[in-house]
């Protein structure tokens, strides 16, 4: 067996999930290695969550091959799930139970002894910085606290792979940064992370390697830096001429930069040097209402690949 295969935690070949005539996931191939932080990036409906459910061994594939921890989830679902940690898109904490009880009952589902769990729960509460909230009911927690508790709960069995489906959706920026910090610590600890997100900054922060999905297919795969280098330019100039004028002005901008993208509210000029492009535009007698030169991001990669923005 090759080294990469020996270290592979997840191997998907031609993985397909069909609902009637609709291909939610359309024959995708990917491998996730031990200790890696692997991201599934794409807009709503791209097939990320469906892929995640198949990896979580709760939804059976309709085609292709899938091996998780060396086992087939269609026949060994419970065995695989016993060694996974899952953070679902929607918190599913037990509202009747206190914070520590949520961790206890979840740990019991894995058959872990109460005595061992009592010690583990203290560690997890500290990790999630919820020590002071141990006796609170989950309804009394903020959205960020609930997410941290859900992540702590997903770690109770010390999983070999932690699956996080949209871990920070709906959270304010501060809460997102706190969560990123916690997830980064897990990554440092060697936990394999699989993350779905439609936030490019989250993907750039957390993922070693990304798979960009759209309409059930893989559009691109690589590290954030590789993807940006391959599919975008070094810099992007954003110019706004007013939403009614952008399309018309764009015709006059042809030849400036390596590529143009006209969005309803702005024009993106892809170039190695954004400032130079802005000078060229002004020389043509065109005066944008606002202009901004920035580095290329995954958002630009996605726009290039799909013609759509990530968050719609």
């Amino acid at each position: 067996m090759k080294k990469t295969e020996a270290e592979a935690m997840i191997i998907a070949k031609g993985l397909t999930k069909t609902y009637g005539d609709f291909n939610a996931v359309d024959s995708i191939d990917f491998t996730v290695r031990k200790g890696e932080s692997f991201g599934l990036l794409g807009p709503n409906g791209a097939g990320k969550s469906t892929t995640m459910k198949m990896i979580a061994a709760t939804s059976q594939r309709t085609g292709g091959e899938l091996m998780i921890l060396g086992k087939d989830p269609n026949s060994k679902g419970p065995e695989i799930r016993a060694h996974l940690g899952v953070v679902p898109q929607q918190d599913n904490l037990d509202r009747e139970l206190k914070v520590w009880e949520n961790l206890m009952v979840y740990g019991r589902y894995f058959g872990l002894p109460r005595k061992w769990l009592k010690v583990k729960i203290e560690e997890l509460l500290e990790f999630a910085q919820l020590v002071e909230k141990r006796n609170s009911k989950t309804d009394e927690l903020s959205g960020g606290m609930k997410r941290r508790l859900t992540i702590a709960r997903g770690l109770v069995n010390e999983p070999e792979i932690l699956l996080l489906d949209e871990p920070t959706t709906g959270l304010d920026p501060q809460a997102r940064h706190i969560l990123w910090d916690r997830l980064f610590r897990l990554k440092e600890q060697g936990v394999t992370l699989v993350i779905t997100t439609h936030y490019m900054d989250e993907a750039e922060q957390l993922c070693d390697r990304l798979m960009v999905m759209d309409k059930g297919k893989i559009m691109a795969e690589g590290s954030p830096a590789e993807l940006i280098k391959k599919y975008s330019s070094k810099e992007v100039l954003e110019v706004r001429f007013g939403s009614a004028n952008n399309a018309q002005v764009a015709k006059d901008l042809k030849g400036i930069g390596t590529r143009l993208e006209v969005l309803p509210d702005r024009i993106l000029v892809y170039a190695e040097n954004g400032e130079k492009c802005l000078e060229q535009i002004v020389k043509k007698g065109l005066h944008p209402v606002t202009s901004l030169v920035r580095r290329s991001s995954l958002e630009d990669v996605f726009l290039r690949l799909t013609g759509r923005t990530l968050v719609e």
Binding site: H83, F127, L155, R185
Partner: peptide
């Protein structure tokens, strides 16, 4: 954020016996 949290880690492979839950 800067606070360190120490977590012991045995790993599910050694910690969890799937047959018990089954």
């Amino acid at each position: 954020i800067s606070k360190e949290s120490k977590m012991t880690w045995t790993g599910a492979a050694r910690l969890v016996d799937p047959q018990l839950s089954i």
